[in-house]
Computed example of a mutant assay.
Amino acid sequence: MTKRRFIPFSELKHRKAIVVDSMHPNGLVLSHWRGAPTPAEVRDNTSAAMVLHALRFNLPGLDLPYVTANHFDIDGFVGVWSLLNLELALENEELLRQMALIGDFRELDLNHPLAGEALKLVCWINAREKQLFYPPFGAEQLPEPEVTLCPKKFAYFLREFGRVLQDPNWEKAAWEEEVGEVLLGYRDMYKPTTKLSRHPDIGLVVLQLPEPLHYYALFSRTQGFDIVLSCYSGNRYELEYKYTTWVDLGSRPTLPRINLAPLAARLNALETSGHTWTYDAITETGPLLRLNGDKLTQVETYDNPTARIIHASSISVEELQEVVVNYFRTAYQGIEPRTFWTWKEIKELQLALPL
């Protein structure tokens, strides 16, 4: 059996490695990034699931002695840890898959028997990451880039994760606050005050609920959909393309992302609150359209909706939904969902849209 070790991404210039949740020509790539040359036989929704497939099927190329990633997140970490802890990874395969789904796509499904344990582990990583290092995307405010800083995170979590995996309750003090928030929000998603309307033809789900929730709760009822319009009391709104459209999903076809600029312009023509509708580029991991979104840092954009101010709009819920649904129906006219869109195709598509 090959004894592997983690190396910083920069060392790929000098040696070959298994590249997890990233891309580089000097090694075996196991990544769900759009356009990644991951072998077809191990394709899946998360990079961690691809790693677990590769381990179970003994994919050619796994004899490389090094493992790396260019950033730290839960999906990538689970993949890296699995390559360094083969037996434990295969013993806990479904639990690790759930961790990657919750961490990357934020789609918590408590009907799954291992989702509760996976949630504890994900929230433990979240807590320790913020406490000991910096939050996701926090490197943008530091003098060094993520690719340089993340090996310190990997060193800590690769050392500590096996202990916590055996009994997450050992670290209950770290995860219980966030887990409690998620579970309360999950319950709120099934209250009569929460309403869902689904538009499968455009991949849009509209959530109407009193207050913002933690993402793991908010997206718990959005599986199979890629655009979420959240409508909170007091005419507070956020529209988001989920991360499911930034990566190559292996389980289902998707529609390509559509430029949000024309939609923002239509909403600004209606808006009289004094706030401005802004939008993120479609190449961002989870682009938001919201009032005053250009004032958010990347850390704030990635953080939960409960952690940011959502301004009241002058546009009614009914009118907003009508504008949003009509926009995407027009944009997606004649476009069929499929797998493995390239960024080049997506960018070229914007030029031909009837908007």
Rank of each mutant, 00 (worst) to 15 (best):
M1H: 12
R5N: 08
F6N: 01
I7Q: 00
P8F: 07
F9V: 01
S10R: 13
S10G: 01
E11H: 07
K13V: 02
H14T: 03
I18C: 05
S22E: 06
S22Q: 00
G27Q: 03
V29E: 09
S31R: 11
H32Q: 07
R34M: 15
R34F: 11
A40V: 04
E41I: 07
E41C: 07
R43A: 06
A49F: 10
V51C: 06
L62V: 04
D63Y: 02
D63F: 08
D63V: 02
P65D: 03
Y66M: 04
V67K: 02
A69Q: 10
H71I: 01
F72D: 05
I74Y: 06
D75P: 03
G76I: 05
S82D: 14
A89M: 06
E91N: 04
L96F: 03
Q98L: 11
L101Q: 08
D104W: 09
D109F: 02
H112C: 04
A115E: 02
E117F: 02
E117G: 00
A118W: 12
K120Q: 12
V122L: 09
C123E: 15
W124V: 02
I125K: 12
K130M: 12
Q131C: 05
Q131W: 01
L132W: 09
A139P: 03
E140M: 09
Q141E: 12
E146Q: 13
C150E: 06
K152E: 15
R159M: 05
R159I: 01
E160W: 09
F161H: 08
G162P: 07
L165G: 11
Q166I: 05
Q166D: 06
E171W: 08
E171G: 04
K172P: 04
W175K: 10
E177S: 11
E178Y: 12
L183S: 03
G185P: 08
Y190I: 07
Y190S: 15
K191E: 14
T193Y: 08
K195W: 10
S197I: 08
R198G: 03
L207W: 08
Q208C: 11
P212H: 14
H214E: 14
Y216Q: 15
L218E: 11
S220F: 03
R221H: 01
G224D: 04
R236T: 10
R236Y: 10
E238Y: 10
E240G: 10
Y241R: 12
Y243L: 08
T244Q: 14
V247W: 13
S251T: 10
I258D: 14
N259E: 13
P262N: 14
A265N: 12
R266I: 02
L267S: 00
L270P: 05
L270N: 06
T283F: 07
L288Y: 12
L291R: 01
N292S: 04
D294G: 10
R308M: 13
E319A: 09
V323H: 10
V324R: 15
Y332I: 07
P337Q: 14
T339Q: 15
F340N: 14
W341P: 00
K347P: 00
E348T: 10
E348V: 05
Q350R: 11
L353T: 04
